[in-house]
Design a binder for these strands. Sequence first.
DNA 1: AGACATTCATAATGGCTCCTTATGAATACC
DNA 2: GGTATTCATAAGGAGCCATTATGAATGTCT
Lengths: 300, 300
Amino acid sequence: MSRMGSMELRQVRYFLALAEECHFGRAAARLHVAQPALSQQIKQLERELGTPLFHRSTRHVELTEAGRELTGYARTLLAEAERARVHMQELATGRAGRVSVGFIGTATYDVLPRVARTVRAQLPDITLELHGELLTPQLVDGLLSGGYDLAVFRSGTAAEGIDLTPLRTEKLVAVLPSHHPLAASAPLPLGALAGEPFVIHPAGPRSAMHDRILTACREAGFQPPSLVEVGETATLVVLVAAGHGVALVPESVQSLRLDGVTYVPLAEQETVDLVLGRRAPHSTAAAQQVAAVVEECVRE
Amino acid sequence: MSRMGSMELRQVRYFLALAEECHFGRAAARLHVAQPALSQQIKQLERELGTPLFHRSTRHVELTEAGRELTGYARTLLAEAERARVHMQELATGRAGRVSVGFIGTATYDVLPRVARTVRAQLPDITLELHGELLTPQLVDGLLSGGYDLAVFRSGTAAEGIDLTPLRTEKLVAVLPSHHPLAASAPLPLGALAGEPFVIHPAGPRSAMHDRILTACREAGFQPPSLVEVGETATLVVLVAAGHGVALVPESVQSLRLDGVTYVPLAEQETVDLVLGRRAPHSTAAAQQVAAVVEECVRE
DNA sequence: AGACATTCATAATGGCTCCTTATGAATACC
DNA sequence: GGTATTCATAAGGAGCCATTATGAATGTCT
């Protein structure tokens, strides 16, 4: 039983070279092989396809009809293989790919748009999936389950299997209704807000900000008399504008300008850290590139 | 220096099997190879492409993003290779291809349309190039130069490098203007046409009919007093209708019905042979198929 | 017409690739 | 924690593909 092989790309490459040169010697030279190698491979290809591809005499080499028809397929095959190779190389070097990035609420209005712009400019072949206004636990779960390749969130929630890179430390600022008596007094000692109702991110494992703010208040010697909990940072600011209370947010939220609210620096150095998380074991090359862009966007 | 190979179709086949099974053992079984062979080939493909294609643990095999992207290319490559293989096989067995057939004038109105119809019905993937109203020397040259794959013409012109197959022997019939006194007398002894002007195919090497007809006249004991030479058989009949003379044509020309002419059988058994010629050394498989159709069309 | 040069096919051999069996390590499951 | 499954690695053998050497055919030049 004569071991039946299938058509291989090497044979296609050989065939096309010979089809273009119509000369075994020159084609073989172009392929960097000796002439008999070419003769044998062409002969084998002809056996496999069941039809001669060239009329040959010692003085003349010419495509048969089948050979002419095959050149089209051959070119298609080699071009497709080359496209695949290039695309794979782009993915390997991270110049292309799909990267999903999640942002915590307070980074949505500041970091997210800058990342989107920079990636589009510097890594045009990367497709970004951006998700804003998320909560830290969602982001951590998403990283671990593969839903997100990268996540920007508040530090404190260390988890197994996630690489953390500190992005920046932000000062907290107070958010007051514009008509509030303290709206003009900067810097504002945190203690001045004692007795005010607070609008705050959700408690429990759902947000890192909640604990951070209550801790700051406790350190300033008071406890907010009432709390309104709200998930999205934008809604939080809107509630302050509507007079439902005051709030503490990272200074980057100041990008979110709204009529009726004033951001007031605190006298204290209360800070929260923003970190970039990526799946530790298998992080895509494209994700690494985008991670670099995120760090770059935050630094300046 | 690590011998750099290029991507091969075998690797693509292996990759796709594994991508679909997501299990080395099953995929290897499907490919009829042992599992380590598959592992090695996949690893080599990954080395060549510069990126992992699968996340693997001992308990889980899953495509990476690059792997997912590659499946598209892989399917395209294999499908194209398969299309090429099928098309080549069609060409090899003669079920597809392009065949150029030339017909001598007197076969144009009889054999040609039947061949066209039958090929279209029985060999739908064959593209026919049909040429009618040609002269024997043109056809022989065309066969030898490759301009025609097959030719239907009159016997007598044997040539080197052409396979001849007799198709049929046709009786000659007289063509007379309908008002001619002899138009009603059938069978007509050839000698009755003595003294009539003859419309005839061109002399010399350009047509086999010319000599055949003059020989017949000589055997009947006369020589036409005047000759009008005309290339196309249709024109010949038209000239007879116009009263320019009489003519002798193979009986198949009777398919060409024209007002003003009458075909009259001869008393003598004067015949001409119709043959099919094909290039002797390299005749396409498709041409063989068409040749069979031509013979079949003529026999009935 | 004959000698020559060119070119493709074939033969024989060697190296490399690929496949095989055997074995080890890791992970999920009981 | 033991066990079974599964993938990777190692080592060896078979086969494919390459090489060099040689022969046959054809076109060309003297």
